[in-house]
Amino acid sequence: MDVLVCVKQVPDPETKLRVAPSGKALDTDGVKFTINNTYDEAMVEEALRMKEEFGFTSVRALSVGPARAEEALRATLAMGADEAVLVETPPGMELDPLFTARLLAAAAADIPHDLVLVGRHAQDDEAGAVGSALGEYLGLPSYSFVTELTPVAASHQLKMRRYLEGGEEVFSGPFPAVLSILKGAKDPRTPTLPNILKARKKPLKKIPVKDLEAKVSVLKGGFQPTSAVTSFTLPPPRSGAKMLEFQTPEEAATKLLKVLKEEAKVL
């Protein structure tokens, strides 16, 4: 069994957001990028857990992004992935989740995969759209918000649990497949120093995005984004809570219900 994990490098969640001069994007000048999306780390851990538990052949990592995204792939290699592929985008190239899914699909066609894993969503655009779109482009089933996963190799079936409103569904489906992992069985491991050093020497192949143009052009949507950001804005900073003064709990309750009804109009 071969597992392919798709990771995305995102800005550090603590980073101070500023709008780029174009007014259409985050100003990435001086922004610190995290090694990896938090949800991807949980997903990579799940892939490594399965490799160890079920004796899978390999875990390979794939990402689409600019040259700096190599850091995210090296971090994934340091966690324990065997090889990595970066689809390298030139500076300023615009992507959207479905275009990214098409690029991943074109690159994945040349990488062995029985399971393709993605995280719940990326912490920057929060779209959570790549997984099931990738399934469509690869002609594979997709299963989202998976919380438990056991492959049964003999029958080519996955036994899974997935989140749904108010509970979880225990279900099964065939693989090869694309899965979005909501949470894994274990907390993500922290790479050790020896493994970080080893990761520098593991194979990492770079594919210029142009090399995939022919393959992507025949997919629905083509070699271009099908959505465009026309503005990126930051809300005015919250001014802090209006503090309600009170002497007794009853007075606190009365004042709060009054403002919620009359001022905020949410009751």
Partner: peptide, 13 residues
């Protein structure tokens, strides 16, 4: 997103 990919349409979640 799966439908958006099937139709090749702009998709937003």
């Amino acid at each position: 997103p799966r439908l958006g990919a099937l139709l090749g349409a702009g998709t937003a979640t």
